[in-house]
Design a protein around this nucleic acid. Structure first.
Lengths: 339, 339
DNA sequence: TTGAAAGCGCTACCAT
DNA sequence: ATGGTAGCGCTTTCAA
């Protein structure tokens, strides 16, 4: 059987209170006793039960992380950032893939509450904000990552999506493109809407209009994106510059262009969003708007831990800046089409 | 404060024993009482403490998963498979990235033990098998995923790496390639060695020899792989067929070929390994040896849970079959070089 | 510097 | 069909 604090105490001829003290480095224990007890714990491979400790009021030192799909490179990279920071601070993390289904979100939320995690990070879309309110009532620390839920009073770490759209537009404009289009995620994804908004406004400021039918939506998977891009690029006078709301869609566009015999970036320029590993392995490598993924994860963890420590409850809103990463998928517009 | 079982009992005017029964659906409780109590739990947003339950002998319904790096698409996909199966069976999973450092592995192992996870899955390399023995002594269920540790008596789910190498060789041979090379991971990675062994033996059986200097090693990252491939393809009479031990390396080779002005698969054919999402987004898309990632994850979880249920301790060894997935990165050998 | 004892929230056994 | 109660392994006063 597993050794308990009683076994150690008995073996050392002391009380469990004393053993507890040395485990936690608290109280005043003579150097001799301390060393003696440590030796015994070692010898018996004693691992204090975090479960029992948590029951007496200590934290569980476990955080929850909800994402749509951990196998998606963007979320995998985010999870890595969250895990790293958590480890540094002494916490472990339970990762949950929700497939963006509210029902799944709700079940995971309950589960994590039952396991008494110390806080939760939410990077998944939630249709019905209501399902978060029980958490807040129980004063569970919550941080939203790259999600906007203005109605809720919770910590939030996001990027400036609009700026991302602006950066993309500026780059395309500078390259002389005038026939532009965007490949966007379904309209319920608020961050995508912001990106499109930024893109459009930047165009307007430069005297261009982004027609409604130049904004196409597609589902999250490669196949759908490619289909949509195929339609878009198959049209007469197709756009020479396409802004995609994530790297996967950009890859779909890349593949569509190739299939239609269009050369990238010679015939058509493509800009992605996220700067996941995918952006670096395509050919040509993707010019894309980079999210500071590592920062996103780190800041979210920090917000949670700060709240756990300081009891400081005022929800913080942190907004990070995206950046343009120039690779090879966007180039000069064809001469005959340039202004 | 959070509601406890006592609050529910008081509110319902019953004993905590009764409440416990309805929570667990055990014992005989009148329909009326049961409904009444359920209603109260609902109203008070009561979430039974899994912590307290675990302390009384129940399981924690939590599993641990150790991988080198969750942001690596292969492990991200594996993690997703593990998570899915765990969820179906009522477990959650704590994911730990070890960066293949024994010291990290050891710390995580202790941590997970302290949190009293019900079992652990190990998909990370471990130099010193010793650090697993404490687990086995404590009779902690352990399953190795895609790792060989013959010395240890634990469950194992692997793929037939040698067969993978053979499939790659056969494909290249069928396409008429005779100048072959392999890009391998460092020799301490046993699975890579097996893949190379299979590749070489298949060549031998066909009357070809794989010279020692046609086997190149590179670190895990894209950059190193590309460098090594650059060297390999820069030589006179460079190989026309390259077998890479994972998709990332194959991408490195792809990029190297492109940089040298070689066309894939016209001038050089490349085969990868793993069939992660990366294989589908490159251009040309990668012909690769697919690992049954989903099965790997599912079977590992099943082994653990079975052990938890049946007390059946005999360590199982499960070996799954890899498959050749033909895309566009491998084609006919140049005519003048064909046999 | 050390120990005794009262919980923490729950399960399970034994009564009733 | 329901309740009383003894732990589970630990932390934390309060005494000694």
């Amino acid at each position: 059987m597993k050794a308990t604090i009683y076994d150690i105490a008995r073996e050392a001829g002391v009380s469990i209170a004393t053993v507890s003290q040395v485990i936690n480095g608290k109280g005043k224990i003579s150097e001799k006793r301390r060393a003696e007890i440590m030796e015994i714990m070692e010898r018996l491979h004693y691992q204090p039960s975090a479960i029992a400790a948590a029951l007496t009021g200590k934290q569980t030192y476990t955080l929850g992380l909800l994402v749509p799909d951990i196998s998606n490179p963007y979320f995998a990279e985010l999870a890595r950032a969250v895990e790293d920071r958590s480890r540094q601070l002494g916490y472990s993390v339970v990762i949950c893939s929700t497939d963006n289904k509210d029902e799944r979100v709700e079940r995971y939320l309950n589960l994590l509450q039952q396991k008494r995690v110390d806080g939760m990070m939410i990077g998944t879309g939630i249709e019905n904000a209501e399902i978060l309110s029980p958490l807040l009532q129980q004063s569970m620390p919550v941080a939203l990552i790259a999600r906007h839920m203005p109605a809720l009073s919770v910590h939030t770490v996001t990027i400036d999506d609009m700026l991302g759209g602006i950066l993309a537009a500026q780059h395309l404009l500078e390259l002389g493109h005038t026939r532009l289009a965007v490949l966007s995620e379904p309209s319920k994804v608020s961050s995508s809407q912001e990106r499109v908004r930024g893109f459009r406004e930047a165009l307007q400021r430069a005297g261009h209009v982004l027609e409604r039918d130049q904004i196409r939506e597609s589902a999250a998977d490669l196949g759908s994106a490619k289909q949509e891009a195929l339609r878009l690029l198959g049209e007469e006078n197709h756009p020479t510059g396409i802004f995609c709301c994530n790297d996967i869609q950009a890859i779909g566009a890349l593949q569509a262009a190739k299939e239609l015999g269009l050369r990238v970036p010679r015939d058509v320029s493509i800009i992605g969003f996220d700067n996941t590993i995918l952006a670096s392995v395509t050919s040509p490598p993707l010019t894309t708007i980079a999210q500071p993924i590592e920062d996103l994860g780190r800041r979210a963890v920090d917000l949670l831990i700060d709240e756990l420590k300081d009891e400081q409850k005022a929800p913080q809103k942190i907004v990070l800046k995206p950046e343009l990463v120039v690779r090879d998928s966007a180039g000069q517009a064809p001469a005959e089409l340039r202004k």
